[in-house]
Every structure is written in C-alpha cells, then in structure tokens.
Design a protein around this nucleic acid. Structure first.
Lengths: 347, 347
DNA sequence: GGTTACCCTTGGATCGATCCACGCCAGGAG
DNA sequence: CTCCTGGCGTGGATCGATCCAAGGGTAACC
C-alpha cells in the first residue's frame, strides 16, 4: 500500500489520510449530502491538501461517461466563416466547462461528396464513439445542407447541431441556429428609421438556404414597410468584387440610398464602389453587412453589421446536450436565436 | 458472457469471435509482429466486422496515457491574433491526429496578474494533469511574456510552447516560434528589389518583445542595404488609427516611399491615410503588413503581408511532443521557423 | 429496552485493456 | 530422442473509481 510513493494520490490514499473509508471519500465527491457536515469538511480538507482529483480514466471506465464532447474541425478555409467558428469555439469551451465537460477536437481526413455522406466520412465520429472517447458530438456545418446531424441521430449518436437541417425540416435531432431572416429585418428597420426608402439587397445566388433565408428578411420587412423591392436585388458569388459590381449596377439605374448585404465580404465590395463614384459610405448612403467580422470592425468608417449571438448559441447547445446525455427528452428540438445589430459609421 | 448483447464489442467479444485469446487480440493491436500473418489477418477481419475499437478509458487507466493534448483557450479577444489561432488550431489538430493524439480544449476562468503567475492560474492545468486527463500541454501565449511554459516545465509538466521564452532565454522547455525578424527582413528585401530606398517602419511601443524583434529585422536589413533608418520609425499602439496618424506624420516630413508595418492592423491604418493625401497604395507607395489576416486578403488592392508558417509550427510542436512523451531527450530545445511573404497589390 | 434513523465501514465486484508468468504444442536442431 | 524456440492459450492481477449489500456503531425516540 504505497501511500505517498509516486504519482498523484488516489481514493485510497485520501481515505487513509482522512481516516475514513474509500466509500466515504467517494461519497464526499459524488453525494456530499450523505456525509455529516464535519466529516465532509475534514475529507475536503484532505483532498485539498493532497491535491487529489479523481482519475478520469478510471471514472470513465466505471461510469461509461467520458465527459468529453467531440467537435470536428473542418480543413481551414480562410474566410469569414472561420472567424465566426473561432468566436463560437471560445464560447462553447466556456459553456461546456461550466457543466463539467471538455471539448475534444478531431478532424476527418476523408473527403466528402456533396449529398451522399459515405460511411467513410462518418468513420471519425464512429470511431470516437465506439471507443467511448466522447459522450456526444456537436456538428457545425451550418454553411451547407448539414446532412451529418440527421445521419448521426438516426444511428442513436447523441448529437446537437449548430445550424438548421434546411433540407429536411422533419429531422428530429436537436439543433440551434441563428435567425438570419430576423437579422436582416433588423437591418431594414434600422435603415428605415434612418429615413431610407430605396434599400437594395446584395446577396448570394439562389440555392443557398442561408442566403434565401437572409434575403427573405429583406423582402418581408420591406413589404411590411410598404417599400418597393422590385429591381433592387442583386445576386452573385460571395466576393468583394461581386459586391462592388453589384453596387455599381444598382447605382447606375435604381438610385438606392442603402445597401443591405448578405455578408461582410459583399458589403466591403459595396463600400469599395462608392468612392469610385465620388460618394462615401455613411448616413446618406448606407452599407450594412452580416457577421460582424474583424474587417467590419477595423475599417474606417466602421461597417454596420449583423452580429450573430454565438455566445448564446453555445449556451443553448450545451443545454440541449445536457438533456440529451441525461436521457431527458430534449426540451426543444430546434431553436433559433435572434442576432443583434452592431451599428457603426456606414449607416 | 454477453456476446452481442448490448454496447460496443470488447476484447473478450472479439477474442471469442475470432477463436483466439484476449491476449492474442491485444497483441494483434499493439504488437502485430508477434502474430503469425494468417492469425493476424483473421483477427483483423473480425475486428473490422464487429467494428471493434479499444475502450480508451480502459486503455488509459492501464497504460497511464490518455493520448490527449491539452490546449487552453483564452477568452475571446476579437483581434487578428485570434484569426491566427484559428489557423494554428486546424493545423495542430491535423498534426496531432496523425500520430494518434487528440486535442482537448479547456479554459481557465481565473484571471491572471501580469508577472507573477498565481497558483490559481495554473489550477486548470494542474487539475487536468492530476486527473490524468491529458498527457501534455501546448501553451500559446505567444503575444505576452509567456511565463507559464517555464513554470509548468519546472514542475515536470510535459509542455511545448508556441512562442519563445522572451523574458528568460535560459528556460529549458521546448518551444517553437516564428522568426518575426526574418519576416521583416524579407519585407525589406522585397521593397528594395522594387526600387524603394526610404522605407519607414510603423510599429509598436518599446517593451513588446515581439515588436522589438520585428523591428530589428527592419533596422538590420536596412543597414545591410546601406539605407537610412533615421527618423523613419514610428511607434505606437496597435490600432488602425495610430497607423493612419503615423503615416501622415512620416509623409509630412520624411517622404518615405514604402511602409513596413508590425501588423496588418497598422498597415490598414497606413493604407487609409494615403487617399487622404491624394495618393494610392501600390508599387510607387508601398504598404506591407504582418500576419496575412483576412482583412489583408480581402481589401482592394490586396495588402502585401508576412505570413506565419503555422502549419509547420504545428508539425514541429507535435514532434517535440512525441519526443517529450517518449522520454526521449527533445532534439532541439527551441526552434524558429521563417515566415513567407504574400505579395499583393500594395507593393 | 427496543426501535428507528443516521453515518460510516467493510469487503467485494465491476468496467475493459494490458501486463505477467506460465504452459502447451509443433517443428527444427543437436 | 531430447532441447529449444516461436506462436499462441490460460488464468490471474492490475489500473482507480464506483456500485452494491450487509453490517456496526451512536444517539434520539417511544
């Protein structure tokens, strides 16, 4: 019975030092209400003195719970979506930490086809789950159809998605998403309040669920204000250059006084176009972006932009996760959160 | 002996199905060379059929190795440093994955004082280590003095740092860093090649190790080309506005034809100043940044910038980690990697 | 005095992989 | 014919925490 021989202390070590039994120490940690207050305190003191903390491997083995949440990181694309991921990741780690979970990152090397998810792509998930390395997953493919979540859910893999199952509204896995439509509605309201009437939309091509969702915020809210949308909409790729060209085209014929954009990237393009016609972004000629990226915050004047409530998303996801892991019925299967508007110099 | 009752298969399950003993299956996984090829193949087939993978908790408990690497995420600061972290994180996860490790994220809630690292701040690390949750740590406080690495190392915590121990060159923990000085030397060479002679420096205040390191690349290489540096240097906070003011001040009196900046943020400020004097960034009046941030890539014309080789940093760190964990003497205690130059429209 | 409740002890089993020490068998060498 | 070695089987112990069941004290109560 090596007491203070080598390595970190164990339950037995602590028990011996505190003059109680293993069981009592275990109870002190897991069911403190079973102990008499004075005993509890004594045990806790010894735990603190010895710097004991329970071996996670042993605990996991016995309880069949690793208290780890798996998150797959996609190969780095240096775009604004990634900057979002970073903010999200921070919040997520914090939220999970508060309820005693940690985040385990992994990466799937297998490339995926577009629609059909081959078994290979799920291999990473499957392996981690079979080896009991993680208790659940969070999937974050917000920017595509995100078929993985439903796929995993069908196989009884505990999973919560950041992003709606756009392509299958009947999917029954829990998800949390940001209400892009509501975000753009905020933008329109804000611009109308500033006196704008001819508000143009610069967005993505048809076919992007997220793009259409954001755009619907523009059309709906414009109509709600009895404002015209006809010929005021441009669609194209998500690039600075398209934003610039779209702004020129709209200014040539339609005389808009404000631009609501589907992304900061497009908004940066619109901004770029204005000086080329001797105008400047500001109250009179407004530009609003989406995502509140670093670029939006750094440029002068700052770009007004829709900010996703990623911190709240993380909190919601963790709540779902807790329900899921406790085998409680998850309160809400899907939930959308409203973004906010960061108002800066361009509006 | 529940064969295919519930839960994932275990060693015993596989052994029974393959008609061999537990030990043989274990050997098939950990010391395949001990098995006759035909036996090995048979066992592997059964493993594949049953979809077996060893329980990580059990393995960790027995071998005292979790195959997890701890990485602490600092509270989100939305600056360019964070964008770097993201790129680094991706590479790191990939590199660690290739050698059978995963990355575990955690966060320390305790605030830190400036110099003295209180025991509290290390609590997060310590707890994870005592509970045998991780085998080692990576610390990434590149942008400060980074006292934690040395501190942890002294306590025999396996740790590799991304970032030099600036304040204590004799620290003996392994580290990998990017050679900022060499990066700026690249910039100077590039600008000289483009015909520039009066190259200004826009950097940070004294006292920042990293700032001084980068600046030394400018002074050294300017002198190597027999070019003047006198009165061509501006120092201030890392903000767009300071960059702008510095550019104006330098243009007022010194007539520089190129600006080398300590960060993309400063460079964006310099860029901003040029149109205000009827000039435009480009070959004739060059601006170069540092970090190759998204903003540098997205703006028009694109900002030439120094790109940190984060992918290589990750690979090097993982190599150190392997040595460390194998109790091999770490090949190089510290190592710096040269950055590259992403040349774009502003130079 | 007996009952009840409360607090704690005791000793064991269990999770699943690995480590260890044998033991067994076949084939080739001596 | 024996010895030896490579390939594999067998049974048990081990890692450390938790689960389980039974039991021994003490104090308060009727």
């Amino acid at each position: 019975m090596p007491a203070d021989d080598a390595g970190p202390p164990t339950l037995t070590t602590v028990a011996a030092a505190a003059g109680v039994s293993r069981q009592t120490v275990s109870n002190a940690l897991n069911s403190p209400e079973l102990l008499r207050p004075e005993t509890l305190q004594r045990v806790q003191e010894v735990i603190a003195t010895l710097g004991y903390s329970p071996n996670r491997a042993a605990r996991s083995l016995r309880t069949r719970a690793s208290h780890l949440i798996g998150l797959r990181i996609e190969p780095a694309l240096e775009d604004s979506a990634n900057a979002l991921m970073d903010r999200f990741l921070h919040s997520l780690v914090e939220s999970t930490g508060e309820v005693g979970y940690h985040v385990l990152l992994f990466t799937g090397s297998a490339p995926e086809s577009d629609i059909v998810v081959p078994a290979d792509a799920l291999e990473g998930y499957s392996e981690l789950l079979r080896s009991a390395a993680v208790d659940a997953f969070i999937v974050t493919d917000t920017y595509r159809g995100n078929p993985q979540a439903a796929f995993l859910r069908e196989r009884d893999v505990p999973v919560v998605a950041f992003g709606r199952p756009w392509d299958d509204p009947r999917a029954r896995h829990p998800w949390v998403d940001v209400d892009g439509r509501a975000g753009v509605q905020l933008v329109v309201d804000h611009l109308v309040e500033r006196g704008h009437q001819r508000i143009a939309w610069v967005g993505w091509q048809r076919g992007s669920f997220i793009g259409e969702d954001r755009r619907s915020g523009w059309t709906d809210q414009m109509h709600a204000h009895d404002l015209p949308t006809s010929r005021l909409s441009a669609r194209g790729e998500d690039s600075v250059d398209f934003g610039r060209r779209a702004a020129h085209a709209l200014l040539d014929t339609e005389g808009p006084t404000a631009f609501a954009c589907a992304s900061d990237t497009l908004a940066m393009g619109v901004r770029r176009a204005l000086p080329e016609r001797g105008r400047a972004p500001g109250r009179d000629l407004a530009v609003v972006g989406f995502d509140d990226s670093l670029a939006a915050q750094v440029c002068t004047p700052g770009l007004t932009s829709v900010r996703q409530p990623l911190e709240e998303v993380a909190v919601e996801i963790v709540q779902c996760l807790e329900d899921l892991l406790a085998h409680r019925p998850v309160a809400r299967c899907g939930r959308t959160l409203p973004p906010t508007l960061s108002v800066r110099g361009t509006s």
